[in-house]
């Protein structure tokens, strides 16, 4: 950012490259690690998330069977089928592993897109105020007013059951909370002297927003990113469970949907337990991580 990579002798005798590595660890990725691992919740959450991420990545190689292969139906967990099979004979462990990928993907994409939208709307509304703020906040109010289920129903009915529309539906609703909160934080930050000073030094509005305000609301942004992803995963599970999921994709939610539709809920307890546990633990893990960021932003929460 400030100096060429190789160590150049400056007039003041500084060799910069060594400093650069230390700073990178101080800021950037290293900082994230320190914040998250600094709280027991964050550490637990990160561990769970990493576990699922690893499963998602190596999934295809560790699946014992093809998740779409119809084997022996309704088998209780055994050595052959560690998590049992569904009514159509799908090996649930393989389904679960396959589902991990899809769930994570849909969740991460929806989560990130919604924070990008919500965050930017909040930033612009909070910084500019006036008309811009009014328009953007009315938009947010509309989003708040939209009931999730009818919206999903309409969307899916119009465009069919595809995971892309599901992502769209999730994003359309999840962005609203972050917008409000980030707007509030931006608003208060914009009043501070150093923003005024930045303007006085010649910074354009965009520069002020992205170079001065965003770094100062980073903990909040990260908190809401984690939270949005958690919300997105939960929402996807609900939507899929209700039958609006993509039939060509296996997610934990669709597994539960299949269970429900089969009518074997009372018999096949194994079918119910594994996806539910996964959903709950992943969402909890993400909430824990967001809590770690919150504790960093608000030191008074630490040590509880």
């Amino acid at each position: 950012m400030h100096a060429p990579d190789h160590a150049v002798k400056q007039p003041f005798g500084l060799a910069v490259s060594r400093l650069r590595w230390r700073r990178l660890l101080e800021t950037g990725f290293g900082w994230h690690l320190r914040v998250v691992l600094g709280s027991w919740m964050g550490a637990t959450g990160l561990a769970i998330l990493l576990f699922f991420a690893v499963v998602g990545i190596v999934g295809p190689w560790i699946m014992p069977h093809d998740p779409w292969e119809m084997l022996e139906p309704l088998q209780a967990p055994s050595w052959r089928y560690p998590l049992g099979t569904s009514d159509l004979g799908y090996d649930l462990l393989s389904c679960l592993i396959e589902g991990t990928r899809s769930t994570l993907l849909i969740g991460l994409v929806s989560g990130f897109v919604s924070i990008v939208i919500g965050g930017n709307i909040g930033l612009l509304a909070g910084y500019y105020g006036g008309r811009v703020d009014q328009i953007l906040m009315r938009l947010t109010d509309v989003a708040y007013g939209m009931p999730f289920l009818p919206f999903v129903i309409v969307l899916i009915s119009l465009f069919g059951r595809s995971k892309y529309f599901l992502i769209l539906a999730i994003v359309a609703l999840v962005w609203r909370t972050s917008a409000r909160v980030i707007r509030a934080q931006t608003l208060s930050l914009s009043q501070r002297q150093f923003i005024r000073a930045a303007r006085a030094r010649g910074c354009s509005d965009m520069r002020i927003i992205y170079r001065h305000i965003v770094p100062n609301i980073m903990p909040l942004l990260l908190l809401y990113t984690a939270f949005n992803i958690a919300w997105a995963i939960g929402t996807e599970a609900s939507a899929s469970f209700l039958g609006f999921g993509d039939p060509s994709t296996i997610t934990w939610g669709t597994m539960l949907y299949d269970l429900w539709v089969s009518g074997d809920t009372r018999i096949a307890w194994w079918w119910f337990v594994s996806p539910s546990v996964c959903i709950v633990s992943l969402v909890t893990a993400l909430v824990f991580i967001s809590r770690a960021y919150e504790e960093h932003a608000n030191p008074r929460l630490r040590g509880r």
């Binding site: 950012m1 400030h2 501070r192 002297q193 150093f194 005024r196 000073a197 930045a198 006085a200 030094r201 010649g202 910074c203 354009s204 520069r207 170079r211 001065h212 770094p215 100062n216």
Partner: peptide
């Protein structure tokens, strides 16, 4: 312009170098 409050007029997340370089960069 030089401001009154030495603490509030600096961006808490910028190092001194970046603080001073901000004007020329912008």
């Amino acid at each position: 312009i030089i401001f009154q409050d030495p603490f509030e007029s600096l961006n808490p997340r910028l190092q001194v170098f970046d603080q001073v370089a901000e004007g020329p960069r912008a």
